[in-house]
Design a protein around this nucleic acid. Sequence first.
DNA 1: AGAGTGGGCCTTTTT
DNA 2: GGCCCACTCT
Length: 671
Amino acid sequence: MGTATLNPGARIDYQAELNEQQLAAVTSPGGPALVIAGAGSGKTRTLTYRVAWLLENGVKPWNILLLTFTNKAAREMTGRVAELLGAGADGIWSGTFHSIGNRILRHHAEAIGFRPGFTILDREDQSDLLKNTARDTGAPTRDKRFPKPDVLAELFSLSSNTEEPLEQIVRERFGYFEEITSAIIAVRGAYEKRKRTANAMDFDDLLLQTRRLLREHRETGEYYREQFQHVLVDEYQDTNLVQADFVDQLGSKHGNIMVVGDDAQSIYSWRGANFENILNFSRRYPGAATHRIETNYRSVPGILDVANAAIRGNSRQFEKNLRAWRSSGARPVLAQLATNNEQASYVAEQILKLHGEGLDFRDMAVLYRAHFHSMEIQLELTRCGIPFEVTSGLRFFEQAHIKDIAAFLKFTVNPSDETAFRRMARLLPGVGEKTADNLWETVKAAAASGISFDRALRAARPPARAAKIWEQLAVTLDEIAPERKPISPDRAIEAVMDALYEDHMKAEFANYESRREDLRTLVGYARQFPSTEDFLSQVALLTNADGAGSREEAGDDRVVLSSIHQAKGLEWRAVFVIWLTEGMFPGSRSLENPDSLEEERRLFYVAVTRGRDHLYLTHPQLRLNSNYGDPFQRRSRFIAEIPEHLLDKPEANEAPRKPPVKKTSQKDWWY
DNA sequence: AGAGTGGGCCTTTTT
DNA sequence: GGCCCACTCT
């Protein structure tokens, strides 16, 4: 890549393609810059044009660092830059905070006490290791009051990401664990040691260890600080302290830090995001330029009026006024329904109506605070024969069969990985948790010593039932890593399947066929990776179904049912926001705390601003068929905060039409 | 080890 | 109502 010279004919006409505010941000000189980009204002566009502009002005791709939160965002961003500039954009350092951390750490693992080929623990691996650690630490795990591994993981993670001592996290956010704080702290200490021994990092480590590396190793830190002439950050309102620090450090040499975000859409404080980062950016960087991008291209004015009114209730925010670019359209609808069942039939009815008016199903979304809010909707849509998809459920790379296979590969790359070993061992008949632990006790020394996997495994004696297949396992490991050098990941997966995993799947899974298909897909996906290590990093960091496993067909025409969190960044022609009642949205847990209430309001703002043409806000007065919670539902304060004249109310006497199918079969389920 | 039973819980979710 | 976990029994 000797020259990044661009074909002059391909130059971008920035003035024509951007509005004034976007243009100012895109062409701003160096130095720290804060870009406050309202919902639907072309945030991604601004960022991608900024990258293009830098490249056209002679910045080399590898001197640009572009940080995002999700793989999806990273892909979209680089894709769009490539569209603008073609191959001239190759070589940009673009990715999630975690993947960039991983990329740096892979080169310098030894400097911070890890070995190359360290394993990345995903949330499940982390839980697994924590469960073991807690037990070995002698923590009172049998006590009902002792936090489960998942809860421990959350506590530790929150502490890491907020940089608050664990003690404080427990006291302030999990008061009911306060009397066992010391036991919890002890588990954390043991867990940290255990990870090190296993040569493994969890997601948080990818950030923390990178930061430590940059801080404590002057030369390495200097190298990267020198390299990244421009640092750009997407969704800055969702950064936590560690990430903000990460950005500050990497950008400190050249000082060209551009952060883009919308404080009104900060909805992740419960996992450590700190929206002070964006609010205080100009204080941390005196003299930082501030750009506001306030023209909304997405929604009709009626929807925007509601959005602006909704967010006004918050005290802590940048003042901004989102202006509609579009000039006319339908007014948002507020529908009060008698019960949750009627809410569901109302939504179904309106979906059919809009469909009749020419909207595709895929143009519509039903959004809600929590997944269980969608229950009745799912039933009702099924009953009416309306196709839909729910954006939740297991992700491709988190499914058992994918993780099982990955365990074999992980172990060959990192023979200290006890989590991978135990997972493998537990696949054998007659081997449960206890036996797997015992086997590891015997094998671990041999595995670390450098002798062949075959010989290492033969040091242990598994239960008689598993003896035969244990031998097969030993042979297979040697086959996929002769002389402990892993062969290519695709061939390794095939070898494991042939040797033992196919049989395991047939016996274990009712849907053997489809799982085998998944694994075939995985083999194909693995081919693009030069090494097993690269492949495994990718599998760990790519928790979405966006890599190998995307089974979505382009032709699918389905209504989307989604939590608001997952809907962020997306848009539909018609959006339904349901369950707008006190206790549901805002959720009951946020009612007492003003900060969480403000976050709920931002969440509501995010929901409202997803809609382009039609917006429906619905709330039932009565909650039927539930064994917990209050049956009487009061209208959400978020509705009360919207001036009445902004909302259309359907005629009270417009009785719900008869549902197209009889209700009989549902009855049993309901009562 | 694995199947079966009863009690307690019940936001949001990316990497 | 349903899920997940701990405990019991085989």
